[in-house]
């Protein structure tokens, strides 16, 4: 086959189609390769394994007296563990909080005497301080009751719950239901 013949062949419509197909296939494979190569870099910015190892924490709650709150750290966040008195429990079980975010107390606890919530105000993330009737956020004045439910804005939500379980009567595992 002479060169002039093959030149002519390269100009045929089928040859052009084939070339376009090859171009697109090459670009597609290159695209997949670039995405695959980018993944390790994106992934490296996710929490490293030493950070993930903080995802569960065992807490001894035997030392928390009735009526006392203990603040512990879980996933770099404060968690309130509140040992409630019978009066506080019945008061909370009788209400559903305010109309901002109504919720039954039973839905917020595993055992009524233990309230476990994330200690960050749902408004902008300050740590509320314990008061007689619940919690008060020093940043913008949000109020929560003894079930961690929002009573006064600006916070839009009740204090967030987290997965936890009782390993024994006085041992909690935070981070895993």
């Amino acid at each position: 086959m002479s060169t002039s013949e093959s030149d002519n062949e390269a100009d045929l419509p089928e040859a052009k189609d084939r070339r376009h197909f090859l171009e697109k296939a090459t670009c597609a494979v290159a695209g997949v390769g670039i995405v695959a190569a980018a993944w390790p870099f994106v992934s490296s910015m996710n929490p490293a394994s030493n950070v993930l190892s903080k995802s569960t924490v065992e807490i001894d709650i035997g030392s928390i007296k009735t009526g006392e709150v203990k603040t512990v750290e879980w996933q770099s966040k404060p968690v309130f563990i509140f040992h409630r008195t019978p009066t506080q429990i019945s008061a909370m079980q009788d209400s559903t909080g305010s109309e901002i975010d109504p919720q039954a107390d039973d839905d917020r606890v595993l055992k009524p005497e233990w309230l476990v919530v994330i200690g960050l105000c749902t408004h902008l993330g300050c740590v509320p301080s314990k008061k007689q009737e619940g919690w008060f956020c020093p940043c913008h004045g949000s109020r929560y009751d003894n079930s961690g439910r929002i009573l006064r804005s600006p916070a839009p939500k009740n204090l967030h719950l987290l997965p936890y379980q009782f390993l024994s009567a006085d041992k909690l595992l935070l981070g895993k239901a």
């Binding site: 390790p40 870099f41 992934s43 490296s44 996710n46 490293a48 394994s49 030493n50 950070v51």
Partner: peptide
């Protein structure tokens, strides 16, 4: 060491 053992794909980078 942290990069090699704990960071996701740290060894690769």
């Amino acid at each position: 060491d942290h990069i090699m053992r704990e960071v996701n794909y740290g060894w690769l980078i």
